[in-house]
Simulated assay, not measured.
Amino acid sequence: MLTGLNVAVIGGDARQLEVIRKLTELDAKLFLIGFDQLDHGFTGATKAKIDEVQFEEIDAIILPIPGTTQEGIIDTVFSNEEVKLTEELLSKTPAHCVIYSGITNSYLDNIVQSTNRTLVQLFERDDVAIYNSIPTVEGTIMMVIQHTDITIHGSKIAVLGLGRVGMSVARTFAALGAKVKVGARDTAHLARITEMGLTPFSLENLQKEVDDIDVCINTIPHLVITARVISNMPAHTLIVDLASKPGGTDFRYAEKRGIKALLAPGLPGIVAPKTAGQIVANVLTQLLNDLLIEGKGSS
């Protein structure tokens, strides 16, 4: 139980509804900011504007998976009102207050550091990332089916990166009968790709390796699918970029070349928000319980 814990949930999409549901069931006291258009009511949760919340009493702040923009703006699907997280606001919170976000950026890092608060990146946790790769893979399959005129079975697919998402993507498409090759830099990853029964290649040879593929799926969060790489792809190639914004693809050149390139971060929240929300809610429950026992009590 989370009785006695005051939590501010600021913005987010349908995934946050599962978080709210779980935390209210465990008797946490929630303040919902950026949810004024939400029809659903939750016992123990109060809708409020950001300037109406007494942040001096807040033990934890839960941000959406993307965190904030570089200007501090928080995405609010259930509100038209702009919500901004500021250094001044964080400085009002108790010293033990923890901020939870899926990912971070320099703005969020800076205001957390300047106020000496703790930031937990949920998507840096292996358990969250691995569980989350399941709806990501299902969403990727959906996009490939929708945007190609061939079957996955027998198609030639290049997956870039063998992280937690890349491994799940490569394994699943291979299980569906695709001819999958995986690009990586780490020699240990190249060995693992071979062990998985897939075809490994070094990312240094990416331009050469894409000359006969049908689909390129990127999971690497920096520019790897450059104009030079795109220029060597067949005209029918589909690029699905799963990396966080702005992705790892030169989308301008892809459009100029006539190659369909789709930026698809946050797929779990689109194709399976309930499941994706439950994954986050379960981990947050554990973390907030630890905060209640240890962090709050020691402040």
Rank of each mutant, 00 (worst) to 15 (best):
residue 7 V to E: 02
residue 13 D to M: 07
residue 14 A to S: 11
residue 15 R to L: 03
residue 16 Q to M: 14
residue 17 L to F: 04
residue 20 I to R: 00
residue 23 L to F: 01
residue 24 T to I: 04
residue 25 E to I: 05
residue 29 K to W: 05
residue 29 K to S: 15
residue 30 L to W: 02
residue 33 I to T: 04
residue 34 G to R: 00
residue 35 F to S: 02
residue 35 F to K: 01
residue 41 G to C: 07
residue 41 G to Y: 05
residue 44 G to Y: 09
residue 46 T to W: 10
residue 47 K to Y: 04
residue 47 K to L: 08
residue 50 I to L: 09
residue 50 I to K: 05
residue 52 E to Y: 05
residue 52 E to L: 05
residue 61 I to C: 08
residue 63 L to G: 06
residue 65 I to S: 06
residue 65 I to D: 02
residue 67 G to I: 11
residue 68 T to V: 14
residue 70 Q to D: 14
residue 70 Q to Y: 09
residue 78 F to M: 12
residue 87 E to F: 13
residue 90 L to C: 10
residue 93 T to E: 05
residue 94 P to S: 12
residue 96 H to Q: 08
residue 97 C to G: 04
residue 101 S to E: 13
residue 102 G to E: 10
residue 103 I to Q: 06
residue 105 N to L: 12
residue 107 Y to F: 15
residue 115 T to M: 13
residue 116 N to F: 10
residue 117 R to E: 10
residue 120 V to Y: 10
residue 120 V to A: 09
residue 122 L to D: 13
residue 123 F to L: 15
residue 130 I to N: 02
residue 132 N to G: 00
residue 134 I to P: 03
residue 135 P to C: 05
residue 138 E to L: 07
residue 139 G to L: 00
residue 140 T to R: 03
residue 144 V to G: 04
residue 146 Q to G: 05
residue 147 H to V: 06
residue 149 D to N: 14
residue 151 T to D: 14
residue 152 I to Q: 06
residue 152 I to V: 14
residue 155 S to W: 06
residue 155 S to P: 07
residue 156 K to A: 04
residue 157 I to S: 05
residue 158 A to Y: 02
residue 159 V to F: 09
residue 159 V to I: 13
residue 161 G to E: 08
residue 162 L to N: 01
residue 162 L to P: 00
residue 164 R to M: 12
residue 164 R to K: 14
residue 169 V to N: 06
residue 170 A to G: 09
residue 172 T to P: 07
residue 172 T to H: 12
residue 173 F to W: 11
residue 175 A to K: 12
residue 176 L to K: 11
residue 176 L to M: 15
residue 177 G to V: 14
residue 177 G to Q: 15
residue 183 G to V: 07
residue 186 D to T: 11
residue 186 D to R: 13
residue 187 T to C: 07
residue 188 A to S: 12
residue 194 T to S: 12
residue 197 G to C: 08
residue 202 S to P: 07
residue 204 E to R: 08
residue 208 K to G: 03
residue 212 D to F: 02
residue 212 D to H: 08
residue 213 I to P: 01
residue 215 V to N: 00
residue 218 N to Y: 07
residue 225 I to F: 02
residue 228 R to F: 03
residue 230 I to Q: 01
residue 230 I to A: 03
residue 233 M to G: 03
residue 237 T to F: 06
residue 238 L to W: 01
residue 241 D to N: 04
residue 242 L to Q: 06
residue 243 A to H: 06
residue 246 P to A: 08
residue 246 P to D: 08
residue 250 D to S: 05
residue 252 R to Q: 14
residue 257 R to S: 09
residue 260 K to R: 12
residue 262 L to Q: 06
residue 263 L to G: 01
residue 266 G to P: 02
residue 266 G to C: 03
residue 266 G to D: 01
residue 270 I to Y: 04
residue 273 P to A: 12
residue 276 A to C: 05
residue 280 V to Q: 01
residue 281 A to H: 00
residue 283 V to F: 03
residue 283 V to E: 15
residue 286 Q to A: 13
residue 287 L to W: 04
residue 289 N to Y: 15
residue 297 G to W: 05
residue 297 G to Y: 09
residue 297 G to P: 01
